[in-house]
Design a protein around this nucleic acid. Sequence first.
RNA 1: GGACCCGUGGUGUAGCGGCCCAACAUGCCAGCCUGUCACGCUGGAGAUCGCCGGUUCGAAUCCGGUCGGGUCCGCCA
Length: 620
Amino acid sequence: MADLSTPYRTHTCGELRPTHAGSAARLSGWVHRRRDHGHLIFLDLRDRHGLTQVVVDEEEAPDAHAVASRVRSEYVVMASGTVAPRDADKVNPRLATGEVELRATDISVLAESKTPPFYINEPDAPIDEPLRLKYRYLDIRREPMLRRLLLRDRLVQAIRDVHHANGFVEIETPDLIKSTPEGARDFIVPSRLQPGSVYALPQSPQQLKQLLMVAGVDRYFQIARCFRDEDLRGDRQPEFTQLDLEMSFVDEATVMAFVEAMAIEVTRATVPERPIRETPFPRLTFGEATERYGTDKPDVRFGMELVDIGPALGGGAGEPSGFRVFDETLAAGERVKAIVAPGMASASRRETDELTEAARRHGAKGLAHLAVEGPGDVRGPIVKFLRADALRGIIERTRAEAGDLVLIVADRTDVANEVLGRLRTELGARLGLAKPDELAYCWVHRFPMYQWDAENGRWDATHNPFSGVVPEDEPLLVTASGDPATPSPADPAGRARAMQFDLALNGWEIGGGSIRINRVDLLRQSFALQGYSLDRMRNLFGAMLEAFEYGAPPHGGIALGIDRWAAVLADQPTIREVMAFPKTQSGSDLMLDAPAPPDPAQFAELGLRTVGVPDRATRD
RNA sequence: GGACCCGUGGUGUAGCGGCCCAACAUGCCAGCCUGUCACGCUGGAGAUCGCCGGUUCGAAUCCGGUCGGGUCCGCCA
């Protein structure tokens, strides 16, 4: 360790113990709290390491006492004196340093402070978030925020350790790159040297890391800043951080195995007190995930899975169930699915109305419910329509028990899954079904390669456009017509599955990866299906396409959202809580007051002027 | 682009047509206090209720707009 001793302090505010008793010490920190007893003043001195009580006795140190009596909250103070053990009845068990105190002989004010706009010394006090963001440097002085940034530091540190221990090389890639059309809107940066041209900020280092594979780097990782100009959410900021990694000469199993082992080790190093629910991580195909949980990022801490009750209703083929909505849905080839809300049979009319309203908001035409009062005693508005055996069949298939509420959606498969998936998430939270400490990782893989973009009449990559196809599905990468220029929703390509894998944690999507296409012919074929002409491909991905002519090794990797990962590990509802300086939903930095109108001189230099924006968008 | 919620002394809340030129807690200021640790006691200052407009005899309270913040939809491979 370097020698970091300074004139300002001999110890931190979290360091002194009874073993230091009798020795001289000097502390510097912020005044956390002052307790003035007239001739005796107590100062709690705080730094990021802890809190130490400083005692100033007017008889012992009149000068120090005079200084202490004019000191206020958040003043930066240096206190020198002797470490003294406290009498047994004066020990403060809530402080790590509570068995000792510093008897000050000398106190000096290093900096005064205005009264802060909110409490820094009361960790539980609620504060309006905009205020916290404006004074983020004060917010970070508060213990909860500091604790979360320290957790994030442990996370990133553990990530670096594990990667280096496994032969990965951390390489930085540029932030001024070229715009590519896939995915989100780019942030662009005008070029001064080439007026009229722009750089784009990377949405992720995707192409660059693949080029590093072509370069032979073999195992790369980076804690990379990424930028996407889309609307914000609790789990989305315009700039965010990814753990980006890529490996050569690997298959799907190798990448997933490494990421899984890495995630476990990193989790244990970061939050050793939180149990990981299941290892190896459960693996669900995309189809299973959506059928059973109604989402591709399931929270597998609790069951309450979606159940297909079609078969209990005659499946549209046999005897009709008696309830016309169900029978017509099944006859149309659509689905009737259900979830069981445990203990909610006694839900009030108001509660069931709210659930129905939520279902409608999420796109369902309605929501049927059955309250299981006891064995054979089922109540609800649709009971009178249902044949007895259909009703019995529903209870059997859903395994609903006395006291449970069965919620049923009859709709297209995607609607039924999505609606019930959302209800499951909401009810799981409301009913407290998940153990709050538990960390439930799970893999979702075998995504469809493409989804049909009805608006543009073409196939769109479901995830990364460079993702490879599952080998046995390679023949499916064609259109029905045989010409990639005339795609249709019935093309075999729609059935092709990607070597794509997402990592979910407690219902958050924290990462997505794949084995990439490393053959130029397949890459071209895949892009052609997505409606890219050869010229457009060259313009957009020229470097990649050319590089792949020079021997691209088989490779694959993943990107994990560090902010989301940290938020879940820190048990926080938004990623803002684990970012030092986040932006508001409208993309403002309330502390720096960004974005701000441009300086016209800067604009002129770049050959730019604003058009069609309000007056306030220009600065004098 | 859309839906919904929030905006009252420094902070967090209460008040939701007249009882409010606004209450409570805490913070702040002053005085007192030698063992506190959310110290205590006494006293004091501090908000025209985000902003603009309207309804009304009367608006913190109702309505419209606007600004700011949040949740969600769209968007985000």
